[in-house]
Write a protein that binds this DNA or RNA. Structure first.
Lengths: 410, 410
DNA sequence: TCTACTTTTATAATAACATTGACAAAGTGC
DNA sequence: GCACTTTGTCAATGTTATTATAAAAGTAGA
């Protein structure tokens, strides 16, 4: 027989990962505290903690308060001991982040992608990763790269089935990247990793069931259930953009009518505003963009609404009406703890969020509604890159203690 | 320290459950076959199989073909060795099923619930379970009862938050039943367990991601993801009935407009048909129900449509149009392998299912659509009771080999 | 200050499990 | 009939988690 991975060792891996997670959550715990939280014996905890001490992700840090006996040695989580890499693609540009074990960004590198070919994109990303690694040679970095890509991604194989924005079809991105940089690569859709980002470092820290809604060129959702990404049978769950909101609404390129994306994406909001400006021919927005309406983007509409512009508020109110239907449906169907609004324009607009909260109250059932918080994202455009790093961090224990425990730079 | 459950024992439980599942799926396997499928060594498999042989859920059954060496002893799964109990409530009536390890119903007992009180319902169920146990004293029965209840059920506590149909609020059904019958009780919403039923013994055998849609007084969905029920943060996921389909549609008692339930439930379909009959005053349905329209139910409409009645077909077509929107949304959001149509009326109607397939094609995205099959349920009204038994069967290994391994009747 | 009591930490001994290796049993194929 | 292969089981081994034990390091009260 070949050397099979023993199951007792696997159990140790599981327990070590458990201890690791608790330490990351609690920041400072004593050994007996860990024993209580894990259900393991104090002796076992000591053993597991020893291995974490060796790697440096935990340090002894003074003593805790005595409750009538020997005071416990406190263990402190050191997020800076090991780092992770995450990359996100948008607008023909890669952003690569180096983060600590809390997914906090420490360094970043951006690079333009020349042309729209997948080969060029892979080449560019490899260069950006190299640059980042060069700059951070002194750090210990997990030997893997998380990638948030546009389009439908088969997460098992790392193949991008289709990304119409950039014209990619059947692109084996994982393979292409792994052959270029000597790292394991995890690929996922950028809205899905955006959800991970907001859960780890953004608005959703501490929640287990969360839906991240990213509004941009299109609309997409990243769904987290019990702390893990909801993938679906085909890796295509969360296609919120083509959910039907108005069964007899405007035609969508996808063939359906009344898709959410036709009603509340950035282009839809900008388009609706331009249309109204053509009719009214007045107001602050008209004065600024009347001459060159193509320059008007959704961000300008959100900004104007925040400043009280009536027309902008009306447009957003209409969009919120549609989006509230979609969010209400999400709440009824998924029963999440939290809805996080992401994307470029919508993420910062508390006005828009408040509109949604009001309107969703009519659309969702009371019991499910009572469990949910609707909030704006805290990471903005960084959510996807941070979340891509999370794809790596989720595998941190294996990457640190597995066979291939040879970090890139020592 | 008190006697804590050791983790090595837990590992054995996990492996035994794994072997158990493979045997149930494969029906006949050899020990080396199991070793291959589990990744365990032959010696370990032998050990685990021994315990299964002792309980009788596996039997040696002749020899397999030799591939150039000693022929393997074949192990056959014996679903009849141990039985499970599942109950479902509908129309103030309990149906209790006794099933084998494949969730196949072997015996059943029904009982009317006098009045609408929860106490009376618990009493009645306890009597029905007793009767069933009396009749099957010779069988070995898992010491637990699965229950499919109406309303919103908190699955962690077994408390029914609200069941408006029967006027229950905050009913601790699990507790009430456990104190009456000496069995562990698992409670879930009946649509959720319906999904389990169709997955284990119905249309969805072999699938891992399935959505069961039950149409009756209301509309509800049971969602299965990776073989397990999708619960949500509040146990209230899958409230399909109050998903918004027509944002400006008819008002629903829940306060929202255009809820699916107002458009395609049994009462909605029957009501729409009556309305049309009042206008047209002709046709086969009018001849039969024109005098007493209250007698017309949804089942009659489905039956008439199957026989080609034009008016009935039109009504169903309209309902299918609405339901297709909801199903399309489910496919885009959950990306399931299969959609199973349940409920009293719709389950048997291939005509209705075909309408849906056609209409959904316009509503869902191609990639997710390519992964999904839309089909009618195979268990009909039995789905919920069978699925309730599945709640127990999912815990079969613990119940059989845990501390409390004292089956009711030996 | 001293003593009794607690709690923590480390270490050795023990128990449970999975795996390895060896070997007999039971075939195939030349 | 012989070489070879596969299967099933047993004893030996290695890994892990737990228990028991003892020393360390504090608190609290007399």
């Amino acid at each position: 027989m070949t050397s099979r991975i023993g199951q007792p060792e696997l159990l140790k891996e599981i327990n070590r990962a458990h201890v690791f997670e608790i330490l990351r959550r609690e920041r400072i715990v004593s050994r007996p505290g860990l024993a209580e939280l894990t259900g393991l014996s104090r002796a076992t905890v000591s053993l597991l903690v020893d291995s974490l001490l060796q790697v440096g992700i935990v340090q002894e840090a003074g003593f805790g308060a005595s409750s009538g006996g020997r005071p416990p040695v406190l263990l402190e989580f050191k997020p800076d001991a090991v780092h992770a890499l995450g990359a996100r693609m948008r607008d023909y540009q890669w952003s690569v982040f180096l983060t600590d074990l809390d997914a906090r960004p420490l360094d970043r590198e951006s690079i333009e992608i020349p042309g729209s070919g997948a080969e060029a994109a892979a080449d560019a990303l490899a260069r950006a990763v190299d640059a980042l690694l060069q700059r951070n040679q002194s750090q210990r970095i997990l030997p893997a790269l998380g990638v948030g890509s546009p389009g439908l991604v088969d997460m098992r194989t790392g193949v991008i089935q289709s990304a119409t924005d950039v014209g990619w079809f059947e692109v084996p991105l994982k393979q292409m990247l792994e052959s270029r940089i000597g790292l394991e690569v995890y690929v996922a859709n950028r809205s899905k990793v955006g959800a991970l980002g907001e859960r780890w470092r953004g608005a959703g820290t501490g929640t287990e069931d969360l839906i991240y809604i990213s509004i941009g060129t299109g609309v997409a959702a990243g769904i987290i259930h019990r702390g893990e990404l909801y993938i679906g049978s085909n890796s295509s769950a969360g296609e919120l953009g083509h959910v039907t909101i108005e069964p007899h609404g405007p035609l969508c390129p996808c063939g359906n009518r009344g898709c959410l994306q036709q009603l509340v994406s950035d282009p839809a909001i900008a388009g609706r505003t331009r249309e109204r400006l053509r009719r009214t021919q007045q107001g602050p927005l008209f004065e600024r963009y009347g001459a060159q309406p193509e320059a008007l983007g959704a961000a300008a509409v959100f900004a104007a609404a925040e400043e009280g512009d009536e027309l902008a508020v009306e447009v957003l109110d209409e969009a919120a009406e549609h989006l509230a239907v979609a969010i209400g449906n999400l709440i009824n169907l998924f029963n999440p703890e939290m809805i996080v609004l992401g994307g470029q324009a919508g993420a910062g607009s508390e006005l828009f969020a408040e509109m949604l909260r009001t309107k969703v109250r009519k659309r969702a059932m009371a019991y499910a509604l009572s469990a949910v918080t609707i909030t704006t994202g805290r990471l903005g455009p960084d959510a996807a890159a941070v979340g891509a790093a999370v794809l790596v961090l989720q595998h941190a224990p294996e990457l640190l203690f597995g066979e291939q425990a040879n970090a890139i730079a020592q």
